[in-house]
Design a protein around this nucleic acid. Structure first.
Length: 351
DNA sequence: AAACCGTGGTC
DNA sequence: TGACCAAGGTT
């Protein structure tokens, strides 16, 4: 092995990107960009919000659905909250959907439906943090801002063989990334580093043999690429228990509740239920004869496992619920529910 | 500033 | 089965 005397050249990565850029619905590829085609900032922003901690594969169908239904930021600004939350159902991190709508309304009312172009203006908007502000500024407006996401962190940690564990390493990794960000084609460059991280410099088995930056990579020289970046160990997830109540009225209507805006599954529809803890207390939303389903619904959230006991009841037309409201059969679709609630429903409706 | 906030795929 | 991971942001 020789010393990596080469410095990583942004230009080398851009040439790689020109040949290997991934094709995605929200992206304007390098050849179209060269012809002067600019991406739609609304679509860039939408994709970046959806892609936060979420895979490209999971995002694609949601991106199509949202941009078809709400083609511009002003269309989205005028949407009903419940419609946006229902359309987001299943994608997770539901605060993103609430902030998406807030942001659209600010851009519509305070910016006349035109996205601001600077990092500082973008980061002031709801749901836009350091990464997304840099991503929109660079990708949509070709400003030389530096994106630091999980991909870039990994690429930089390896390029400079930095063994500092994350998240403490972030400032240093940002310095590395920032020093590399070019004035020329910063939008393509931002996407190029992330594509490199997603397709070549991958977490488990990096394809160093195909990497355009291999000769400049200190981890390649040291043989440490697979072990980087280091991360501080995570806490084990506790298990919590809960009870969900699925009431079906004799006309087929189902009793649902809109959850409070803050906290877990905030703003989403769900079955009324108990708190989720070590030993939940009964909390039926309407007087009825409740029967437990044999199987429980299991689901894992970001920081705990949930085992949900599902109870069902058939209730007469004239009975008023203490919590929630009935949805007629025609207006109910399991797709409007977050995944954990869909799992509970499947236990009742399938067998 | 550490904790909170979803989900589906993979090994 | 379980831990890890994915284009992070907010409090």
């Amino acid at each position: 092995m020789s010393d990596p005397r080469d410095a990583p050249e942004p230009q080398v990565l851009l040439e790689w990107y020109d040949r290997h850029a991934r094709d995605m619905p929200w992206r304007v590829g390098p050849s179209d960009r060269a012809r002067g085609v600019r991406p739609d900032p609304y679509r860039v922003w939408m994709s970046e919000i959806m892609l936060q901690q979420t895979t490209v594969a999971a995002v694609k169908s949601y991106f199509e659905a949202f941009t078809n239904r709400w083609p511009t930021v002003s269309d989205l600004a005028k949407a009903e909250d419940a419609d946006v939350m229902a359309a987001w159902a299943g994608l997770g991190y539901y605060a993103r959907a609430r902030n998406l709508l807030k942001c659209a309304r600010v851009v519509h009312t305070e910016y006349g439906g035109v996205f601001p172009e600077t990092y500082d203006a973008l980061i002031a908007l709801p749901g836009i943090g350091p990464y997304t502000a840099a991503a929109v500024a660079s990708i949509a407006f070709d400003r030389p801002e530096t994106v630091l996401d999980g991909n870039v962190e990994r690429v930089m940690a390896r390029l400079y063989d930095d063994h500092t564990p994350l998240p403490a390493a972030k400032p240093k990794l940002m310095d590395y990334a920032s020093a590399l960000t070019p004035e020329d084609r910063p939008g393509c460059y931002a996407q190029a580093v992330m594509d490199l991280g997603a397709t070549i410099c991958t977490p488990r088995n990096p394809a160093c043999g195909l990497c355009p930056w291999r000769s400049a990579c200190r981890a390649w020289t040291a043989g440490t690429a697979r072990d980087l970046p280091k991360k501080t160990p995570k806490k084990r997830k506790p298990t919590r228990f809960g009870i969900a109540y699925i009431a079906r009225r004799v006309d087929g209507a189902l009793l649902l509740e809109t959850r409070p805006d803050s906290g877990l599954l905030g703003g989403m529809l769900g079955w009324p239920g108990s708190d989720w803890n070590d030993a939940p207390e009964e909390a039926p939303p309407i007087h009825a004869e409740w029967r437990s389903i044999d199987e429980e619904a299991r689901h894992t959230f970001t920081h705990f496992h949930l085992r949900l006991t599902v109870k069902t009841a058939l209730v007469p037309m004239d009975r008023t619920p203490e919590r929630g409201r009935f949805f007629a059969v025609e207006t109910f679709d399991p797709a409007m529910l977050p995944t954990v609630m869909r799992k509970a429903f499947n236990l009742v409706s399938k067998p």
